[in-house]
């Protein structure tokens, strides 16, 4: 008997005393917490992002290229990683060297790039979370991990949901997902939170109002 059969057999014998449990799970928890207008939900997202030390900026689509150029300049970035499907207009105002993410790029090469600019899949207001799903305007998971500076653009209000349940509904589990709530942090020293460990230590989120 192989271990698969052995384990499944043990499970079945262990449960012999219990009747089947096919009753539906009562999901009487809330789909979202509190009632808010669309504008208030966006405001809550901004507050919660900032609470976990993300730097939040707000603009409209006309102001976006200038804002991104300014952020890269302020940071002193010499190079920026660009996901293959990023809206070209977003980087129209910056002269910083663009680095395309190639399949052959090694982690060491990515480590030499200063910043990365991406879009996102969805943003969750109640928890201050942005979720990336590897779409062409976000790129592979590694490009938002190795560089120390991540600029993430959220289209508001279209990409914003209130809650975790609503966020999961919008996401495709078949895609590799990265949920990001503030820059990397640790509570490992005396259970006190410190920002900045292995992931990007600076996370800037741009909430761009849709036209």
């Amino acid at each position: 008997m192989n271990s698969r059969e052995r384990i499944l057999g043990r499970v079945r014998r262990a449960l012999a005393d219990k009747p089947a449990d096919e009753a539906p799970i009562a999901r009487d928890y809330l789909r979202e917490h509190g009632r808010r207008t669309v504008a208030e939900t966006v405001e809550l997202l901004a507050e919660n992002l900032a609470d976990y030390r993300a730097i939040v900026h707000r603009t409209d689509s006309a102001g976006l290229p200038g804002l991104i150029a300014g952020l890269l300049e302020k940071r002193g970035s010499a190079s920026v990683l660009v996901p293959p499907g990023l809206d070209e207009g977003w980087l129209a105002a910056t002269g910083v060297t663009r680095v395309a993410d190639r399949a052959g790029s090694t982690p060491h090469e990515l480590d030499r790039v200063d910043s990365v600019v991406t879009a996102c899949a969805v943003a969750i207001a109640e928890t201050g979370t942005i979720v990336l799903d590897g779409s062409p305007d976000q790129g592979r998971r590694r490009i938002t991990l190795v560089p120390d500076h991540h600029v993430c653009v959220v289209r508001v209000p279209g990409q914003v949901v209130s809650s975790v349940p609503q966020g999961l509904e919008r996401l495709d589990p078949a895609r590799p997902l990265t949920w990001i709530s503030g820059p990397s942090a640790t509570s490992d020293i005396e259970l006190d939170r410190v920002e900045g460990v292995h992931g990007p230590r600076t996370l800037e989120v741009i909430l761009v109002a849709e036209d």
Partner: peptide, 9 residues
């Protein structure tokens, strides 16, 4: 925390 910094799926 409301949400931990990173969740990977």
């Amino acid at each position: 925390e409301r949400m931990n910094p990173y969740t990977s799926t």
